[in-house]
Computed example of a mutant assay.
Amino acid sequence: MPDPGRAESGGALPPGAVAVILLLSALWGLNMVAVKLASAGMPPVLQAGLRSVLAALLVPLLCRPLGMRFGAWRQPGVLWAGIAAGVIFALEFILLFIGIGLTTASRGVVFLYGAPFWVALGTHWLVPGDRLTRAKALGLGIAFGGLLLAFADGLRAPAGPDALRGDLLCLAGGALWAATTVLVKASPLRHAAPAFVLQVQLVVSAPLLLLASPLLGEAWRIDPQPLAIGAFLYQAAIVAGASYLAWFWLVSRHSASRLAAFSVLTPVFGVLAGALLLGERLGTGFLLAVVLVAIGLWLVNRPAR
């Protein structure tokens, strides 16, 4: 895979890397719609488990034409760090799906996408050269303010009696998502090939998610509606396969905190996808929210002075 510009671990992202992370954020935003559509055909945790199974089968096929290798994964500590990342990966989805069921979607998204703050704090303490500067902290705050504005209408909607528990579970899910990213940068996984980093997470998470599904009371049913199956295949092949492979490739080369900040765009793209594909209404302050997110990301990605 060609390198779209290379930065030092904690340096500003080059234009090529920004272009790739923008594309990934758009793909992940569309995935928010795909999860809704696929849920009509299969329960969410079962969906996540089957997604990991199919993606694990597809990743080696994707790597071959790209010239990517699984690398020397027998290096000390790499396999165990990969297994730990896979367990965290599975727990993240379990907590998130339980949390979304207890709170509103808007609140769940806002708490989940607190993840860039956790990444910034984790890399500040554990990854040399990826420090939390004042500009980065200010940029994260402004971008997150834009996210709050984008979901303002949903946040004002009444929430159920279990909303606080759901909020905390979504917050924990975001923290685990961040923990996976920090672990890749701060553990022996930083020496591993991106293909291995993804594959081990898929292989470890698949049985854990499939086991969790019946334990959470999900019925193992699959309704073969074409739209639901198509949405599921999008999640497995495009998101969990190709896009996650590109994500870990970026993380191996660039600042994790700067990359994670761009994930705030994912729910913004998700709102746009919902409006275009599902006819959902855009909030009154959506355009201003996009402007705030853009300003925040510009501040995050400014070169350190």
Rank of each mutant, 00 (worst) to 15 (best):
A19Y: 03
L62T: 02
S205K: 00
L276G: 14
V239C: 02
L138F: 04
A157Q: 14
L24D: 03
V271G: 14
L58I: 15
L168D: 06
A81G: 02
L282C: 11
L13W: 07
A289R: 07
A40T: 15
D153L: 08
P14Y: 00
R6C: 07
G279T: 15
V197W: 02
P4W: 12
L245N: 00
P158H: 10
W73V: 13
P161A: 15
I94M: 04
L57R: 02
S106I: 06
A19E: 08
G274D: 06
D3V: 14
R74D: 12
V87G: 01
G230K: 11
G71I: 14
H124I: 10
V300F: 04
P214G: 12
R281F: 00
L102C: 05
L198C: 06
P15Y: 10
G10T: 05
V87L: 13
A261F: 06
A120D: 08
L102H: 12
V204P: 01
L276I: 14
I222V: 15
L121Q: 05
S39K: 08
V110Y: 01
L95Q: 09
A38K: 01
L95H: 04
S9R: 12
R281N: 10
L91K: 09
I222T: 11
L265D: 09
F232Q: 03
C63G: 03
L57E: 07
P60I: 05
E8Y: 05
C170M: 09
G67N: 03
G146S: 09
A195I: 00
H191M: 10
L121H: 08
R69W: 03
A219L: 11
L208E: 12
L149Q: 06
P128I: 06
I94Q: 02
A137Y: 02
G139W: 08
G160M: 09
L149F: 06
G274R: 00
T103Q: 04
F151M: 12
E8C: 11
P267I: 09
N301K: 08
G29C: 11
P60K: 01
L209R: 09
R107T: 15
G166S: 10
A175L: 14
Q201Y: 05
A84M: 14
V291G: 11
A48V: 14
F111A: 12
Q47P: 02
Q225E: 15
G5A: 11
G10S: 10
G86E: 03
V78Y: 00
H254C: 08
V18A: 07
L22I: 05
P4S: 09
W249H: 11
V119W: 00
A38G: 10
L58N: 03
R258I: 13
R221L: 13
V53P: 01
P76I: 03
R302A: 13
S187G: 02
A237T: 04
